[in-house]
Design a protein around this nucleic acid. Structure first.
Length: 272
DNA sequence: ATGGTGGCCCGGCCA
């Protein structure tokens, strides 16, 4: 029997595979919080971003002792993505599988008991006139090629992580404040639409149409307490997964307390 | 949000 979801306000007990994604903003700094959260919520699969460490120091043994297999694609003090699973972990693929490999560690793919999962950390972009923004747009194009290369729209696929893109105006606290900024520009949103056109659905938004659900709040200015957030961490899934997603949430409680990440975990429960 | 925080690891850069 499955448990409830720890500190998450679920109105019921749920059954199925619980898949979570979380930008931890340094796994070294965040390991105690991550372990506490994992014990509390018991995800079956956890995708992480911004581990900010090398593969050599990734705490695979710690996660193994907690019952998780793991795969990590890191590069040092920046970026770094991981997949933890107690539902099987096979066919691990670092980086893009087609085209030019990225020079940064931002994407890792694996198969977890019939579902292919991709942990993505999309480049921030910095500013619309910055070359990093062009890197972000081309990165999203390469992600689309990667997705098309690893799966068909009829497969079980979850592409989740920190997209650094708010899909719509309802996903930000103040559209005026963000005018001319990254994360909300039309070209970025067009890249998300391309993934949608291929067959990936924003299942959390489908299940939570209300505005004001965010996954990231700036550390500065008391943004969290003022409600200045954005929903930029997304779980994009194919139809077979979306149609079997029985529950989803953003665990904003994880943004509270001592030494939080600036991102909250996003969860989906998929019945099997 | 023009940056007041927090990550990297010790001088700024990045988010």
């Amino acid at each position: 029997m499955r448990r409830g979801y720890g500190n998450i306000e679920a109105d019921n007990y749920r059954w199925g595979v619980l898949i979570a994604t979380w930008n931890v903003n340094s796994l070294k700094a965040r390991l105690p919080r991550v372990q506490e959260w994992m014990r509390d919520v018991q995800p079956d699969v956890l995708l992480m971003q911004e581990t900010k460490m090398t593969d050599k120091v990734f705490p695979a043994l710690t996660f193994s002792e907690m019952g998780y297999e793991s795969a990590h694609f890191g590069q040092g003090q920046w970026n770094g993505v991981a997949i933890l699973s107690k539902a099987g972990l096979a066919n691990v693929r670092n980086n893009f599988v087609v085209g030019e490999p990225d020079h940064e560690a931002r994407i890792i793919t694996a198969d977890c008991s019939g579902v292919t999962v991709v942990s993505v950390y999309v480049p921030n972009g910095r500013a619309l006139d910055h070359e990093h923004y062009q890197y972000k747009l081309s990165w999203m194009d390469r992600l689309a090629a990667h997705v098309a290369a690893i799966a068909k729209p009829t497969d079980n696929l979850v592409v989740a992580g920190d997209y650094n893109i708010a899909p719509a105006d309802a996903d930000v606290w103040d559209t005026k404040a963000l005018e001319g900024s990254t994360h909300v520009s039309a070209p970025e949103r067009a890249r998300l639409q391309a993934l949608a056109d291929w067959g990936l659905r924003d299942v959390v938004r489908e299940q939570h149409p209300e505005p004001g659900i965010y996954s990231w709040w700036d550390y500065r200015n008391g943004s969290f307490h003022r409600g200045w957030g954005m929903r930029i961490d997304l779980a994009l899934v194919t139809k077979s997964v979306a149609d079997n997603t029985t529950w989803s949430a953003i665990d904003r409680n994880a943004r509270k307390g001592e030494q939080p990440s600036d991102h909250a975990p996003v969860l989906i429960e998929v019945s099997t």
